[in-house]
């Protein structure tokens, strides 16, 4: 039940886009059509689902204060947490590269579908943000961290597909010229955020 709570909470209440503004750059740049945004959303979810559990293990067994005690008791008071940023981003960049190569080898059709988006994900703030929030909130075990990753990935997917669908329709509406494009997208995202705020009252 705890897992399900974390999953639902990270989709609706702690939505990556509407509550924390993570991954806004690609969200604004790639949300012109539903098809491409779906591809990017799936790719982000996929990468989050792999990187967050890996970084969870890294944090638990190497980075946390005293985490190195399993190597030898003399290392029990070593605190490497200041290294977490550089290690997390290195893990993310390496995993993105590996995922790209594996997908290319075993499923060329999926590779063609995700193609250009995969390398870009290494610098998507939603992915690094996922790992940093995982560390900050201190999830108890790897299951919780995985549920959180899946939930926040799905929330991001939901947001980008939603805005892409709206932007496809917006093309036919009369918007003041100065507001066209980025401006109106910001305002619509704000309005969607207000809609998502209604989930805040839900107690899980």
């Amino acid at each position: 039940m705890e897992y399900f709570n974390i999953f639902v909470k990270s989709i609706f209440i702690d939505n990556m886009i509407f509550a924390f503004f993570l991954g806004m750059c690609s969200y604004l740049a790639v949300s012109k059509t539903v098809k491409t945004s779906l591809g990017l959303g799936v790719a982000v979810t996929f990468v989050l689902l792999i990187t967050v559990p890996v970084n969870f293990l890294l944090d638990k067994y190497i980075l946390q204060p005293g985490a190195l005690a399993w190597v030898s008791p003399s290392l029990a008071d070593v605190d490497l947490s200041f290294l977490s940023l550089i290690l997390f981003i290195a893990v993310i960049a390496a995993i993105v590269q590996m995922v790209e190569m594996i997908v290319e080898k075993f499923s060329p059709s999926l590779y063609n579908a995700l193609g250009i988006f995969l390398p870009l994900i290494a610098v998507n703030c939603a992915v690094l943000g996922g790992s940093l929030f995982m560390q900050q909130r201190g999830y108890a075990n790897i299951g919780e961290a995985t549920c959180f990753a899946l939930g926040s990935g799905s929330g991001w997917l939901l947001a980008i597909v939603g805005i892409a669908a709206i932007r496809e329709k917006l093309r036919y509406s009369a918007i003041p010229p100065a507001l066209k494009g980025v401006g109106i997208t910001f305002i619509i995202t704000g309005l969607m955020g207000i809609a998502f705020m209604s989930f805040m009252g839900i107690k899980l």
């Binding site: 509407f18 509550a19 924390f20 503004f21 003041p176 010229p177 100065a178 507001l179 980025v182 401006g183 109106i184 997208t185 910001f186 305002i187 995202t189 704000g190 309005l191 969607m192 955020g193 207000i194 705020m197």
Partner: peptide, 16 residues
């Protein structure tokens, strides 16, 4: 959070 987005939208509107 949502108001921040709307404010940026308005800044872009004014500038453009």
């Amino acid at each position: 959070a949502p108001m921040a987005l709307i404010l940026v939208g308005i800044i872009i509107w004014i500038q453009r």
